[in-house]
Computed example of a mutant assay.
Amino acid sequence: MSSSKRGRVSAVEAIRGISMMGVIGIHIGAEYLANPTPNIHLVALFDIGTRFSVPIFFFISAFGLFYGQSPSAPFSYRDFLVRRGRAVVLPYLVWSFFYILHDAWHYGMGIPPLSSIASMLFFGNAKYQLYFMVILIWFYLLMPLWRILLARMTLPLLAGILLVQVAFDYWSSFNTAFNLYVYGLPEGTLLRALLFYRLNYWVVHYIFIFLLGGYIALHFDAFRAWMERTTGRLYALGIVSLAALLAWYYKLILVDGYTPLQGIFTAHQLSPLGILYTIGATLALFAFFTHLGTNTLLGRAFQLLGKHSYFIYLAHPVAITYLLMVIYGRGYVLTAPIALTMYAATLALTLLGAVVVRKIGEQIPIVNELTIGLKPRK
Protein backbone atom coordinates (compact mmCIF):
# COMPACT_ATOMS: atom_id res chain seq x y z
CA MET A 1 0.00 0.00 0.00
CA SER A 2 1.37 3.39 -0.88
CA SER A 3 2.19 5.67 2.01
CA SER A 4 1.57 8.81 -0.03
CA LYS A 5 -1.52 10.76 0.85
CA ARG A 6 -3.16 10.10 -2.48
CA GLY A 7 -1.79 6.58 -2.92
CA ARG A 8 -4.33 3.86 -3.54
CA VAL A 9 -5.44 2.08 -0.36
CA SER A 10 -5.68 -1.58 -1.36
CA ALA A 11 -7.32 -2.54 1.96
CA VAL A 12 -10.38 -0.46 1.06
CA GLU A 13 -10.80 -2.30 -2.25
CA ALA A 14 -10.55 -5.64 -0.43
CA ILE A 15 -13.09 -4.55 2.21
CA ARG A 16 -15.43 -3.61 -0.63
CA GLY A 17 -15.04 -7.17 -1.94
CA ILE A 18 -15.70 -8.94 1.36
CA SER A 19 -18.65 -6.72 2.25
CA MET A 20 -20.24 -7.45 -1.13
CA MET A 21 -19.79 -11.17 -0.33
CA GLY A 22 -21.61 -10.52 2.95
CA VAL A 23 -24.53 -8.84 1.17
CA ILE A 24 -24.97 -11.92 -1.04
CA GLY A 25 -24.88 -14.05 2.13
CA ILE A 26 -27.69 -12.00 3.71
CA HIS A 27 -29.89 -12.38 0.63
CA ILE A 28 -29.26 -16.11 0.21
CA GLY A 29 -29.84 -16.46 3.96
CA ALA A 30 -33.26 -14.87 3.48
CA GLU A 31 -34.11 -17.53 0.86
CA TYR A 32 -32.67 -20.31 3.04
CA LEU A 33 -35.11 -19.37 5.82
CA ALA A 34 -37.90 -20.70 3.57
CA ASN A 35 -36.61 -24.12 4.68
CA PRO A 36 -39.00 -25.20 7.47
CA THR A 37 -36.08 -26.58 9.55
CA PRO A 38 -33.08 -24.34 8.79
CA ASN A 39 -29.69 -25.07 10.36
CA ILE A 40 -29.34 -22.27 12.93
CA HIS A 41 -25.54 -22.25 12.54
CA LEU A 42 -25.77 -21.68 8.79
CA VAL A 43 -28.34 -18.94 9.46
CA ALA A 44 -25.76 -17.41 11.83
CA LEU A 45 -23.13 -17.53 9.07
CA PHE A 46 -25.43 -16.04 6.41
CA ASP A 47 -27.24 -13.46 8.55
CA ILE A 48 -25.24 -12.65 11.70
CA GLY A 49 -21.58 -12.89 10.65
CA THR A 50 -22.39 -10.73 7.61
CA ARG A 51 -24.09 -7.90 9.56
CA PHE A 52 -21.14 -5.54 9.05
CA SER A 53 -21.68 -5.63 5.28
CA VAL A 54 -24.15 -2.79 4.72
CA PRO A 55 -22.76 -0.28 7.28
CA ILE A 56 -19.16 -0.86 6.18
CA PHE A 57 -20.10 0.30 2.66
CA PHE A 58 -20.93 3.71 4.16
CA PHE A 59 -17.53 3.70 5.85
CA ILE A 60 -15.85 2.94 2.51
CA SER A 61 -17.92 5.59 0.70
CA ALA A 62 -16.93 8.32 3.17
CA PHE A 63 -13.31 7.18 3.10
CA GLY A 64 -13.28 7.50 -0.69
CA LEU A 65 -14.89 10.96 -0.56
CA PHE A 66 -12.42 12.42 1.96
CA TYR A 67 -9.17 10.49 1.34
CA GLY A 68 -6.52 12.92 0.10
CA GLN A 69 -8.97 15.81 0.49
CA SER A 70 -9.21 18.71 2.91
CA PRO A 71 -12.65 19.76 4.15
CA SER A 72 -11.43 23.37 4.15
CA ALA A 73 -10.29 23.27 0.47
CA PRO A 74 -12.46 24.95 -2.21
CA PHE A 75 -15.47 22.79 -3.01
CA SER A 76 -18.01 22.95 -5.82
CA TYR A 77 -21.21 21.32 -4.59
CA ARG A 78 -22.65 21.39 -8.11
CA ASP A 79 -19.62 19.62 -9.66
CA PHE A 80 -19.68 17.09 -6.82
CA LEU A 81 -23.36 16.27 -7.43
CA VAL A 82 -22.76 15.94 -11.18
CA ARG A 83 -19.92 13.45 -10.60
CA ARG A 84 -21.81 11.46 -7.97
CA GLY A 85 -24.95 11.54 -10.09
CA ARG A 86 -23.03 9.93 -12.94
CA ALA A 87 -21.46 7.33 -10.64
CA VAL A 88 -24.51 6.41 -8.53
CA VAL A 89 -27.81 8.01 -9.61
CA LEU A 90 -27.58 6.93 -13.26
CA PRO A 91 -26.79 3.23 -12.48
CA TYR A 92 -29.43 3.33 -9.72
CA LEU A 93 -32.12 4.41 -12.20
CA VAL A 94 -30.94 1.99 -14.91
CA TRP A 95 -30.98 -1.01 -12.55
CA SER A 96 -34.27 0.07 -10.92
CA PHE A 97 -36.03 0.15 -14.29
CA PHE A 98 -34.36 -3.11 -15.27
CA TYR A 99 -35.76 -4.84 -12.15
CA ILE A 100 -39.20 -3.23 -12.55
CA LEU A 101 -39.43 -4.56 -16.12
CA HIS A 102 -37.76 -7.90 -15.39
CA ASP A 103 -39.97 -8.70 -12.39
CA ALA A 104 -43.12 -7.55 -14.21
CA TRP A 105 -42.26 -10.08 -16.92
CA HIS A 106 -40.79 -12.86 -14.75
CA TYR A 107 -43.53 -12.90 -12.11
CA GLY A 108 -46.30 -12.01 -14.57
CA MET A 109 -47.43 -9.01 -12.51
CA GLY A 110 -47.35 -6.42 -15.28
CA ILE A 111 -45.83 -2.94 -15.11
CA PRO A 112 -46.78 -1.14 -11.87
CA PRO A 113 -48.73 2.16 -12.13
CA LEU A 114 -46.75 5.39 -12.47
CA SER A 115 -47.43 6.45 -8.86
CA SER A 116 -46.00 3.12 -7.61
CA ILE A 117 -42.87 3.55 -9.75
CA ALA A 118 -42.26 7.02 -8.28
CA SER A 119 -42.55 5.56 -4.77
CA MET A 120 -40.27 2.62 -5.69
CA LEU A 121 -37.59 5.00 -6.94
CA PHE A 122 -37.84 7.35 -3.95
CA PHE A 123 -37.53 4.54 -1.39
CA GLY A 124 -35.29 2.18 -3.37
CA ASN A 125 -37.88 -0.59 -3.50
CA ALA A 126 -37.50 -1.70 -7.13
CA LYS A 127 -35.36 -4.57 -5.77
CA TYR A 128 -34.38 -5.55 -2.26
CA GLN A 129 -30.72 -4.46 -2.49
CA LEU A 130 -31.28 -1.03 -4.05
CA TYR A 131 -32.38 0.84 -0.92
CA PHE A 132 -28.67 1.17 -0.03
CA MET A 133 -28.14 3.41 -3.05
CA VAL A 134 -30.96 5.71 -1.95
CA ILE A 135 -29.33 6.25 1.48
CA LEU A 136 -26.01 6.82 -0.28
CA ILE A 137 -27.59 9.48 -2.50
CA TRP A 138 -28.93 11.23 0.63
CA PHE A 139 -25.44 11.13 2.14
CA TYR A 140 -24.15 12.79 -1.05
CA LEU A 141 -26.87 15.45 -0.96
CA LEU A 142 -25.77 16.33 2.59
CA MET A 143 -22.08 16.60 1.64
CA PRO A 144 -21.73 20.26 2.78
CA LEU A 145 -22.86 19.19 6.28
CA TRP A 146 -20.30 16.36 6.44
CA ARG A 147 -17.54 18.75 5.37
CA ILE A 148 -18.44 21.18 8.15
CA LEU A 149 -18.63 18.39 10.75
CA LEU A 150 -15.38 16.70 9.69
CA ALA A 151 -13.48 20.00 9.59
CA ARG A 152 -14.25 20.32 13.32
CA MET A 153 -14.27 16.62 14.23
CA THR A 154 -12.41 15.40 17.32
CA LEU A 155 -12.30 11.92 18.83
CA PRO A 156 -14.47 12.98 21.84
CA LEU A 157 -17.07 14.46 19.45
CA LEU A 158 -16.98 11.24 17.38
CA ALA A 159 -17.53 9.23 20.58
CA GLY A 160 -20.50 11.46 21.42
CA ILE A 161 -21.97 10.87 17.95
CA LEU A 162 -21.55 7.11 18.53
CA LEU A 163 -23.59 7.30 21.77
CA VAL A 164 -26.32 9.29 19.98
CA GLN A 165 -26.21 6.71 17.17
CA VAL A 166 -26.68 3.78 19.54
CA ALA A 167 -29.60 5.51 21.30
CA PHE A 168 -31.31 6.59 18.05
CA ASP A 169 -30.96 3.19 16.35
CA TYR A 170 -32.24 1.44 19.46
CA TRP A 171 -35.30 3.73 19.50
CA SER A 172 -35.93 3.27 15.76
CA SER A 173 -35.59 -0.53 15.97
CA PHE A 174 -36.98 -1.47 19.36
CA ASN A 175 -39.34 1.28 20.61
CA THR A 176 -42.65 -0.54 20.80
CA ALA A 177 -44.87 2.54 20.94
CA PHE A 178 -43.27 4.11 17.86
CA ASN A 179 -43.36 0.89 15.82
CA LEU A 180 -46.98 0.19 16.81
CA TYR A 181 -47.84 3.74 15.72
CA VAL A 182 -46.19 3.17 12.31
CA TYR A 183 -47.92 -0.19 11.77
CA GLY A 184 -51.21 1.33 12.88
CA LEU A 185 -51.19 4.01 10.16
CA PRO A 186 -53.56 3.37 7.22
CA GLU A 187 -52.08 1.33 4.36
CA GLY A 188 -51.22 3.37 1.28
CA THR A 189 -50.81 6.71 3.10
CA LEU A 190 -47.72 8.83 2.51
CA LEU A 191 -46.94 9.15 6.24
CA ARG A 192 -46.96 5.38 6.70
CA ALA A 193 -44.61 4.91 3.74
CA LEU A 194 -42.27 7.69 4.96
CA LEU A 195 -42.02 6.13 8.42
CA PHE A 196 -42.20 2.45 7.41
CA TYR A 197 -39.32 2.79 4.92
CA ARG A 198 -37.23 5.05 7.18
CA LEU A 199 -34.25 2.66 6.95
CA ASN A 200 -34.17 3.35 3.21
CA TYR A 201 -33.41 7.06 3.49
CA TRP A 202 -32.82 8.27 7.07
CA VAL A 203 -29.05 8.73 6.97
CA VAL A 204 -28.98 9.21 10.74
CA HIS A 205 -29.20 5.40 11.13
CA TYR A 206 -25.62 5.17 9.79
CA ILE A 207 -24.16 8.60 10.53
CA PHE A 208 -21.43 7.40 12.91
CA ILE A 209 -19.87 4.79 10.62
CA PHE A 210 -19.96 7.27 7.71
CA LEU A 211 -18.23 10.00 9.73
CA LEU A 212 -15.72 7.46 11.05
CA GLY A 213 -14.77 6.64 7.45
CA GLY A 214 -14.34 10.33 6.67
CA TYR A 215 -12.35 11.00 9.87
CA ILE A 216 -9.97 8.10 9.23
CA ALA A 217 -9.48 9.24 5.61
CA LEU A 218 -8.56 12.76 6.76
CA HIS A 219 -6.11 11.43 9.37
CA PHE A 220 -4.96 8.39 7.45
CA ASP A 221 -1.24 8.55 8.20
CA ALA A 222 -1.89 8.75 11.95
CA PHE A 223 -4.56 6.03 11.71
CA ARG A 224 -2.27 3.71 9.77
CA ALA A 225 0.56 4.12 12.32
CA TRP A 226 -1.89 3.45 15.17
CA MET A 227 -3.38 0.45 13.32
CA GLU A 228 0.06 -1.11 12.80
CA ARG A 229 0.83 -0.71 16.53
CA THR A 230 -2.47 -2.22 17.63
CA THR A 231 -3.16 -4.88 14.96
CA GLY A 232 -3.49 -7.71 17.49
CA ARG A 233 -5.93 -5.73 19.63
CA LEU A 234 -7.98 -4.80 16.56
CA TYR A 235 -8.24 -8.49 15.59
CA ALA A 236 -9.34 -9.24 19.17
CA LEU A 237 -11.98 -6.49 19.02
CA GLY A 238 -13.34 -7.93 15.78
CA ILE A 239 -13.52 -11.46 17.22
CA VAL A 240 -15.00 -10.41 20.58
CA SER A 241 -17.64 -8.17 18.95
CA LEU A 242 -18.68 -11.01 16.61
CA ALA A 243 -18.77 -13.46 19.52
CA ALA A 244 -21.01 -11.08 21.51
CA LEU A 245 -23.49 -10.72 18.62
CA LEU A 246 -23.52 -14.48 18.01
CA ALA A 247 -24.02 -15.18 21.73
CA TRP A 248 -27.05 -12.89 21.73
CA TYR A 249 -28.45 -14.58 18.59
CA TYR A 250 -28.04 -18.08 20.12
CA LYS A 251 -29.59 -16.91 23.41
CA LEU A 252 -32.60 -15.52 21.53
CA ILE A 253 -33.15 -18.88 19.81
CA LEU A 254 -32.05 -21.46 22.39
CA VAL A 255 -33.14 -19.69 25.61
CA ASP A 256 -35.86 -17.21 24.65
CA GLY A 257 -37.56 -19.44 22.05
CA TYR A 258 -37.23 -17.09 19.07
CA THR A 259 -37.44 -18.52 15.55
CA PRO A 260 -34.29 -18.06 13.42
CA LEU A 261 -36.14 -15.33 11.48
CA GLN A 262 -37.04 -13.50 14.70
CA GLY A 263 -33.46 -13.96 15.87
CA ILE A 264 -31.87 -12.26 12.86
CA PHE A 265 -34.50 -9.50 12.87
CA THR A 266 -33.50 -8.74 16.48
CA ALA A 267 -29.71 -9.24 16.47
CA HIS A 268 -29.18 -6.92 13.49
CA GLN A 269 -26.68 -4.20 12.59
CA LEU A 270 -28.66 -1.38 14.24
CA SER A 271 -28.80 -3.06 17.65
CA PRO A 272 -26.15 -1.92 20.18
CA LEU A 273 -24.19 -5.18 19.75
CA GLY A 274 -24.63 -4.89 15.97
CA ILE A 275 -23.07 -1.41 16.01
CA LEU A 276 -20.20 -2.71 18.17
CA TYR A 277 -19.66 -5.54 15.66
CA THR A 278 -19.70 -3.08 12.73
CA ILE A 279 -16.92 -1.06 14.38
CA GLY A 280 -14.97 -4.16 15.39
CA ALA A 281 -15.26 -5.76 11.95
CA THR A 282 -14.35 -2.50 10.15
CA LEU A 283 -11.14 -1.96 12.13
CA ALA A 284 -10.15 -5.64 12.15
CA LEU A 285 -10.71 -6.03 8.40
CA PHE A 286 -8.79 -2.80 7.69
CA ALA A 287 -5.84 -4.16 9.69
CA PHE A 288 -6.10 -7.64 8.12
CA PHE A 289 -6.25 -6.48 4.51
CA THR A 290 -3.50 -3.90 5.08
CA HIS A 291 -1.30 -6.75 6.34
CA LEU A 292 -2.44 -9.11 3.54
CA GLY A 293 -1.52 -6.66 0.76
CA THR A 294 -1.91 -7.52 -2.92
CA ASN A 295 1.00 -9.88 -3.59
CA THR A 296 -0.62 -13.12 -2.40
CA LEU A 297 -3.25 -15.15 -4.25
CA LEU A 298 -5.82 -14.32 -1.56
CA GLY A 299 -4.90 -10.64 -1.70
CA ARG A 300 -5.31 -10.57 -5.49
CA ALA A 301 -8.64 -12.44 -5.23
CA PHE A 302 -10.06 -9.79 -2.90
CA GLN A 303 -8.77 -7.00 -5.16
CA LEU A 304 -10.61 -8.64 -8.08
CA LEU A 305 -13.81 -8.97 -6.02
CA GLY A 306 -13.46 -5.37 -4.87
CA LYS A 307 -12.96 -4.12 -8.42
CA HIS A 308 -16.17 -5.80 -9.59
CA SER A 309 -18.17 -5.47 -6.35
CA TYR A 310 -20.45 -2.70 -7.69
CA PHE A 311 -21.74 -4.76 -10.61
CA ILE A 312 -21.99 -7.92 -8.46
CA TYR A 313 -23.98 -6.04 -5.82
CA LEU A 314 -26.37 -4.63 -8.44
CA ALA A 315 -26.80 -7.88 -10.41
CA HIS A 316 -26.74 -10.69 -7.84
CA PRO A 317 -30.56 -10.87 -7.40
CA VAL A 318 -30.75 -11.98 -11.06
CA ALA A 319 -28.49 -14.96 -10.33
CA ILE A 320 -30.41 -15.78 -7.14
CA THR A 321 -33.76 -15.67 -8.99
CA TYR A 322 -32.73 -18.11 -11.72
CA LEU A 323 -30.73 -20.45 -9.49
CA LEU A 324 -33.79 -20.77 -7.23
CA MET A 325 -35.91 -21.46 -10.32
CA VAL A 326 -33.63 -24.37 -11.22
CA ILE A 327 -33.46 -25.68 -7.63
CA TYR A 328 -37.22 -25.55 -6.99
CA GLY A 329 -38.01 -26.61 -10.55
CA ARG A 330 -36.18 -29.88 -9.90
CA GLY A 331 -38.09 -30.46 -6.68
CA TYR A 332 -35.29 -29.67 -4.24
CA VAL A 333 -35.62 -27.89 -0.91
CA LEU A 334 -32.94 -25.32 -0.02
CA THR A 335 -30.95 -27.53 2.37
CA ALA A 336 -27.68 -26.32 3.92
CA PRO A 337 -25.39 -27.93 1.27
CA ILE A 338 -27.59 -26.64 -1.59
CA ALA A 339 -27.71 -23.14 -0.04
CA LEU A 340 -23.89 -23.06 0.26
CA THR A 341 -23.52 -24.30 -3.33
CA MET A 342 -26.01 -21.67 -4.45
CA TYR A 343 -23.96 -19.00 -2.66
CA ALA A 344 -20.80 -20.07 -4.49
CA ALA A 345 -22.66 -20.21 -7.82
CA THR A 346 -24.18 -16.73 -7.29
CA LEU A 347 -20.77 -15.24 -6.54
CA ALA A 348 -19.10 -17.00 -9.49
CA LEU A 349 -21.83 -16.16 -12.02
CA THR A 350 -22.07 -12.50 -11.07
CA LEU A 351 -18.27 -12.10 -11.03
CA LEU A 352 -18.13 -13.64 -14.50
CA GLY A 353 -20.96 -11.34 -15.62
CA ALA A 354 -19.12 -8.32 -14.16
CA VAL A 355 -15.90 -9.17 -16.02
CA VAL A 356 -17.71 -9.77 -19.33
CA VAL A 357 -19.83 -6.60 -19.08
CA ARG A 358 -16.75 -4.52 -18.11
CA LYS A 359 -14.91 -5.87 -21.20
CA ILE A 360 -17.88 -5.00 -23.42
CA GLY A 361 -17.96 -1.56 -21.79
CA GLU A 362 -14.33 -0.98 -22.76
CA GLN A 363 -15.41 -1.30 -26.41
CA ILE A 364 -18.83 0.35 -25.97
CA PRO A 365 -18.29 2.90 -23.15
CA ILE A 366 -21.97 3.65 -22.58
CA VAL A 367 -22.40 0.10 -21.23
CA ASN A 368 -20.06 0.81 -18.30
CA GLU A 369 -21.56 4.28 -17.80
CA LEU A 370 -25.09 2.89 -17.50
CA THR A 371 -24.33 -0.23 -15.44
CA ILE A 372 -21.61 0.92 -13.02
CA GLY A 373 -21.28 4.67 -13.62
CA LEU A 374 -17.76 4.31 -15.04
CA LYS A 375 -16.67 6.89 -17.57
CA PRO A 376 -13.88 5.96 -20.01
CA ARG A 377 -10.48 7.40 -19.06
CA LYS A 378 -9.41 10.26 -21.26
Rank of each mutant, 00 (worst) to 15 (best):
S3C: 10
G7E: 14
R8N: 07
I15Y: 04
I18G: 08
S19I: 15
I26K: 04
L33R: 04
N39Q: 11
L42K: 05
V43R: 03
L45Q: 08
T50G: 05
T50P: 07
V54G: 02
V54K: 01
I56Q: 02
A62F: 02
A62M: 01
F63V: 10
A73W: 08
P74Q: 04
F75G: 09
S76I: 06
R78P: 05
F80Y: 11
R84F: 07
V88A: 05
V94H: 01
V94G: 09
D103Y: 12
I111A: 00
S115H: 10
M120S: 11
M120P: 08
F122N: 05
F132Q: 07
L136N: 08
W138S: 07
R152W: 00
L157N: 09
G160E: 02
I161E: 04
A167V: 11
Y170C: 00
W171S: 11
S173D: 13
F174N: 12
F178Y: 15
N179Y: 11
Y183M: 10
L185C: 06
Y197E: 10
V204G: 08
H205T: 11
Y206H: 14
F208H: 04
F208Y: 10
F208W: 08
I209V: 03
G214T: 13
Y215M: 00
F223V: 06
G232F: 03
L234V: 08
Y235F: 10
G238R: 08
V240K: 03
K251M: 13
L252G: 13
V255P: 03
I264W: 02
L270H: 11
L270T: 14
T278G: 14
A281N: 04
L283P: 07
A287P: 07
F289S: 10
H291N: 12
T294K: 08
N295F: 06
G299W: 06
R300K: 13
L304W: 09
L305F: 12
Y310L: 15
V318K: 00
Y322D: 03
V326K: 15
V326A: 15
I327S: 06
G331W: 06
V333G: 12
P337W: 01
T346I: 10
L352W: 04
R358S: 10
K359S: 09
I364G: 09
I366T: 09
L374C: 13
R377K: 12
K378I: 11
